[in-house]
């Protein structure tokens, strides 16, 4: 009895409920995706789900197209967001902290409300919905997620490096290329993670922005799950997981996303 009490009082014991929770709601569900992906509707082992994906031009095309859209969005976000983050973190160019808040604010508004607003803007300007609206909407939705991590890294950057480079005779262009850019790379990498990953996996946004004309990979997965094709849907999810895992390896993702978001409050 006393031993039992001591076991419960030991503070490391307190991680056990959460450990059980994680196994039940994180590990087990992911294993289920894996199991479903390699089974047919009767539960027999099969690779048919994957061969169906490779042989059906529609799904494979959507897949390639989605990666394309995600890359375009990510590149546009870097091009637009990097200068903004640079200006925001530079005290000579921008003094107001309210400006930073204004750039971060959209992150806190429901993504569907933001998408709805984009649709409203295109309606208002009498512009057609379609590929242009899709890319605009994606950039509009995810730009803050690119600016914030880069801004964060740049703000913590040690300015004596920049001064040292200047003292050693580097011109502003060289300082920027050889000092600022390399030092801000971790921010860009976590920005890429935070933009690329959601753009490749969104589903509702593309439907709303293109009046259902353009389908992204996320939509294909959702439709299959909704129509009861769980095994095929699971296989497609597994393919998406592989892509994301590859991106994570590429950008050396270490869960920075969380600390970035947590830092806002």
């Amino acid at each position: 009895m006393k031993q039992l009490l001591r076991f419960f009082l030991k503070r490391s014991t307190w991680s056990i409920p959460y450990a059980i929770f994680l196994v039940g709601f994180v590990v087990l569900p992911l294993i289920l995706i894996f199991l479903y992906a390699f089974q047919d509707a009767e539960g027999n082992f099969t690779l048919a789900n994957f061969s169906k994906f490779i042989s059906s031009p529609e799904a494979a095309n959507t897949f390639v197209y989605s990666i394309g859209i995600a890359i375009v969005t990510t590149v546009l976000c870097i091009l637009l967001g990097y200068p903004a983050a640079y200006i925001l973190s530079n005290s000579e160019l921008c003094r107001s902290k309210v400006m930073v808040v204004l750039f971060i604010l959209p992150m806190w508004i429901n993504i569907l409300v933001r998408t709805l607003a984009t649709v409203a803007l295109f309606d208002f300007l009498r512009l057609p919905l379609g590929e242009g609206a899709l890319i605009f909407g994606m950039v509009y939705n995810f730009l803050p997620f690119m600016i914030y991590p880069i801004y964060n890294v740049m703000q913590k950057m040690d300015h004596s490096y920049i001064e040292a480079a200047q003292d050693l005779g580097a011109n502003p262009m060289t300082v920027f290329r050889k000092v600022v850019v390399p030092l801000s790379m971790p921010g860009v990498m976590s920005g890429v993670m935070m933009v690329f990953m959601p753009t490749i996996s969104t589903f509702a946004i593309s439907e709303l922005l293109t009046m259902n004309n353009i389908k992204l990979f996320g939509t294909t997965i959702q439709e299959n799950i909704n129509n009861g094709m769980w095994n095929y849907g699971a296989a497609l999810s597994l393919i998406m997981l592989v892509i994301i895992f590859a991106t994570e390896l590429f950008s050396d993702g270490d869960g920075d996303r969380a600390s970035n978001e947590g830092g806002i409050i």
Binding site: V26, P29, I200, T202, I225, L241, I244, G255, A258
Partner: peptide
């Protein structure tokens, strides 16, 4: 870290299957 790194759609589908 897994739930934070997983895209929402994967979290959603995996829990749906559970």
């Amino acid at each position: 870290n897994i739930p934070m790194l997983n895209p929402d759609i994967i979290t959603g589908i995996s829990l749906f299957l559970l």
